[in-house]
Design a protein around this nucleic acid. Structure first.
Lengths: 230, 230
DNA sequence: CGACCATTTGATATGGATCAAGCGATGTGG
DNA sequence: CCACATCGCTTGATCCATATCAAATGGTCG
């Protein structure tokens, strides 16, 4: 575990480097009261950094298309992925003034970039916006608490949990097209790529899933997976 | 790990059972705009349940004295402690209508019980209260994220992290009086009592800490602990 | 004093990490 | 269009940190 995912291992390398800061977005006049009506869409290339840990949190983000990972890297290079954000998800919302995680595009993405101050100022006047901000933070809290419950489980349970989580988001609830690598999954689940890989083969052998190609997973026996979900 | 902390092991047993629901508190008229000015203080005995997972979240709580643990129990009895709340901390605040964890008094406690609807209604009118609610949820989020970073580390790092966390809250920043058992610590850190105990002895042998009595811990070498904190 | 419960310590087992090799898909230069 | 390099993934062999099982110790309360 100590040297799990050192920076130079797998895709965890930090070579992606800085990409251009987002340009100040055109703050569309808030005709509705929804946070999501403001901001400008912006493309991010695969592996591009969207923001870094400890940078000022000037913007929040909504995924239009693609997938984003947020993560922290410890001193010794261990990387923990905090979350995967898919189309429709909002991320990067902070109450403090700095981002607590880094964020990267996993694949080419289109992302709506929303100026935080605009939303926060609006919240001061519009109760409804304030409540939305609160609800967003709360659902994030819920997600992280679920993540903790995953991290105390066995490898099989973690992988099963992850698959069920992804399946819930998939268009066909039983066919998953993974945008992320085994390394990403491993760093999300606190396992190694080898263990993730082996566990997937076990689940395949026990007929719980099928893995027609490495990024594609079909749930064959939800009951079995749910049982593992303790 | 599978049978870690089965319900019948250690203090994790669920025998404490229901205690009386809190009586409707006297909602002191909110003269200031602070959430903390409302509600009634109420005693809870050691191991008494304050609320249960999935119960309607009618109240939020502020610890006046004592310590509280929140936790979830999985099917097979594994218990994960979500947090310890000490004097001054607020807990049990939900955005949804149900508690997502259970809460128990670790020792005899005095707890301020605040009606949620009162606060939430007030937030709809008072921007400042709304912002306080948001900030509370956000600081909870921060805490849970830090907890995740603990859970991916080695036993030594987890215990060191836990001690530093507790020390930050102690009157004398180097002398910790633990209100909770080894079992509680283990279930917070995702370890077994044996591993927690052994790790403490290791830290003692390496002169990083002293353990004059089992519930009392003195930090002797913060640098060493911080180094472990990666 | 004796019973009980929390904690520590010891011996052993094991799940997942680590180290190492092989394999299949994708892309690149000749 | 093919040969070869690269990359992501899988599989195998071994190791090790922590769990599990078991017993001893110590502190607390009737």
């Amino acid at each position: 575990m100590l040297t799990q995912t050192l920076i130079h291992r797998g895709t965890s390398r930090q070579t992606a480097g800085r990409t251009a800061r987002p340009l100040p977005p055109v703050a569309a006049h808030a005709t509705g009261n929804s946070v999501e009506l403001m901001g400008a869409p912006m493309p991010f290339a695969r592996n591009a950094e969207i923001y870094g840990e400890n940078e000022p949190a000037e913007y929040l983000y909504k995924v239009i298309s693609g997938t984003v990972r947020t993560y922290k890297v410890l001193n010794d290079g261990r990387r923990q992925i905090g979350a995967f954000y898919l189309a429709g998800d909002i991320f990067g919302l902070e109450v403090g003034n700095e981002h607590t995680f880094s964020a990267e595009a996993i694949v080419d993405c289109k992302i709506l970039v929303i100026k935080r101050s605009t939303v926060v100022n609006l919240a001061a006047r519009e109760t409804d916006v304030a409540r939305q901000l609160w609800a967003m933070t709360a659902s994030e809290l819920q997600r992280v608490q679920d993540h903790i419950m995953l991290l105390i489980k066995t490898a099989q349970e973690r992988v099963a949990g992850f698959l069920l989580e992804m399946a819930k988001r998939a268009p066909d609830g039983n066919e998953i097209d993974l945008p992320m690598s085994r390394q990403d999954i491993a760093d999300y689940l606190g396992l190694t790529i080898e263990t993730v890989s082996r566990t997937l083969t076990q689940l395949e052998n026990s007929a719980a899933i099928a893995v027609p190609s490495s990024r594609r997973i079909v749930l064959r026996n939800r009951a079995a997976l749910t049982r593992l979900n303790a």
